[in-house]
């Protein structure tokens, strides 16, 4: 136990301040009542769905859980079931073999719900595009509120996308 405590003390606190929301990331598919947004914004439950990515975006989502970004410290956590989720965080392109699974996951998420699409592929199909095997961007399959470009987007950019989705629209 002592070596663990020593190591924790030696490491110190690494957590940094979160980014500000960015309205440029909004696709404005639909809006949720501001009051509800304020509520879920403080205890947001996210279900991640990999709909066919190269696994690059997942690497950066994992990083959100590290001490530098400390996403749980902001009241945001990843949940195991879409039925527990307020938000789907989706990476893509959506492969045709994942189309049904993504739609079912979306349907299983209770209203009101938000969808954040991640990465160049999630935004526009990216390098994989649309084909016999790929439906292209996430918005081709389910409604998307916020889309975060990048290959892969940095953890800060992902966090900004998530915070944008739960923030009220700037007037």
């Amino acid at each position: 136990m002592l070596p663990i405590i020593r190591q924790i003390l030696r490491t110190g606190i690494k957590t940094e301040a979160p980014p500000q929301p960015d309205d440029a990331l909004r696709l404005e598919v639909r809006r949720i009542n501001e009051q509800i947004l304020r509520q879920i914004g403080r205890a947001l439950a996210i279900r991640h769905v990999d709909a066919g990515s190269c696994n690059g975006c997942e690497l950066e989502i994992h990083c959100l859980n590290n001490a530098y970004y400390n996403i749980e410290g902001l009241g945001i956590h990843f949940v195991a079931s879409p039925r527990h989720a307020d938000m789907l965080l989706v990476t893509g392109p959506v492969s045709r073999h994942m189309e049904t699974a993504l739609k079912r996951t979306y349907d299983a998420t209770p209203e009101p719900k938000l969808v954040v699409a991640l990465g160049d592929c999630g935004c526009d199909g990216g390098i994989f595009g649309e084909s016999y095997a790929s439906c292209g961007k996430i918005a081709n399959v389910i409604p998307v509120d916020v889309a975060v470009p990048g290959c892969p987007p940095t953890p800060t950019a992902i966090l900004q996308g998530i915070l944008t989705a739960v923030s009220g629209k700037a007037r």
């Binding site: 990999d50 066919g52 990515s53 190269c54 696994n55 690059g56 975006c57 997942e58 690497l59 392109p93 492969s95 045709r96 073999h97 994942m98 390098i127 994989f128 595009g129 084909s131 016999y132 095997a133 790929s134 290959c151 892969p152």
Partner: peptide, 26 residues
């Protein structure tokens, strides 16, 4: 996750293929 990577490569130039090769497994 089958998204047609092998088919996508076909017809690319040797230079273009590098970017796709870097995204087979991130």
């Amino acid at each position: 996750k089958h998204k047609g990577i092998e088919k996508r490569f076909e017809g690319m130039t040797l230079e273009q293929g590098a970017r796709l090769a870097g995204r087979i497994s991130g």
